[in-house]
Design a protein around this nucleic acid. Structure first.
Lengths: 130, 130, 130, 130
DNA sequence: GTGGTCTAGACCACG
DNA sequence: GTGGTCTAGACCACC
């Protein structure tokens, strides 16, 4: 599996990994029942520590997106609306959006440019999905 | 000044504070020349340490959003498009947006619901701004 | 790592530290990929608080000279001409030079003596550097 | 008297003022016996507090560059090599030079460009002087 | 092991 | 009155 992560970024690597996998799931690249690569293999591919990948998978499990089957790998769960209990309430979902939009506005992006980026991203995510 | 911060959040307090102030600036609540509350006062209001607020203010200064005048307070700068060069390149601006949208999609939000939230936020931000 | 700092100086300690390290980098003592000493170790060596060193390192990171990898130390970045955009415009670079030269002139240094000091320093800095 | 100072700069205003006057003295614009403007007038011209200018003048006096005559103004002293006792030892004079040069080198300036800037500044300073 | 954050409180510098 | 720096020490997060 190919994932783009930035080892120099401020964001923790395990989170970059889990986010990248979430995106794959969100856009339907990884459908229900799909297997994630073994921890050792992904760690090797990305050149990071085993624990880092293990933490990323654990987080995905906590959020209910995947199931870890001891000895037989990690598989993607069926999508159930509102399933992301761990992600918390509405406010915790909205805050990151607002922060991201704030950054774009302060960087001088126009309303139109932002909206077209958003719709493009959404289109991308929802094309293959359930 | 009233700001909502979450002491239990994973995000550092000083960043929550600077983000909250950035939002205020982005939506025009704080216009050019406006004074931020004294470090000690805001620290007292929020119930955190003086240094935590000082760090938040220093970050805003580094990003060029405010000017710190030793001995006479912190004032909001004029908005200059693209001023936030220090915040990084395009990719670093887009990534948080994509991550935030992913969370919403996985939480089961429909395209329409997401779009209306985005447009509402943008409207709010761009109403009072220059 | 050995650095000379002056606890009585008007300049803040964290800045003395970051300046001293900058000089090391500028003259090639610390090349790309080199690791800076752990925060706690350098703090111990210099007899100052951990936070003071952390602030110095953070400043170097902000200026793009080093990369902080959480959990595994701080490494020197590749040198990229003009990388120190954050340090400000030309004027902010020239002013300190002029001030320093003024001090020497007022102290009675001759033109020749000043020039030979400058060339000596430059030779030192540019010898090992890429 | 016209002086360029930057109210937004990190450097304290009183120091910017005293430095600017030092430069005037170093380059011979202000010769022995010349009068500095009254505190109130300079404060008004620059739009800063009285105390700020007073501090700048006091610093110049401490360094032996001017004499404050109570009730009759501030006059520039005769230049005597090595007179700047307050400026301290050689090390304290060299350090700022090295720091300034470091900044230029890290900003990607070539040896030639730096040297020509230095000689230009020196020429300027020494033209009208003693 | 690494760095990051936060607190409590002291003291200094600027205007 | 403003902000800045520093300390001592605790606790957390990452790899």
């Amino acid at each position: 599996m190919y994932l783009t992560i930035d080892l120099d970024s401020k964001a923790p690597i395990y989170e970059q990994v889990s986010n990248a996998i979430k995106e794959r799931i969100a856009r339907g690249d990884l459908k229900e029942g799909a297997q994630l690569p073994p921890v050792r293999q992904l760690a090797g591919d990305l050149g990071v520590n085993l624990n880092t990948i293990a933490t990323a998978y654990r987080q995905l499990q906590t959020e209910g997106l995947v199931t870890v089957k001891h000895g037989s790998g990690v598989v993607v769960n069926a999508r159930t609306a509102g399933r992301i209990a761990a992600a918390g309430n509405d406010g915790e979902l909205r805050a990151p959006l607002r922060t991201a939009l704030t950054q774009l506005v302060l960087a001088g992006w126009t309303r139109g440019r932002i909206l077209s980026l958003v719709t493009a991203e959404l289109k991308d995510m929802l094309k293959g999905a359930r």
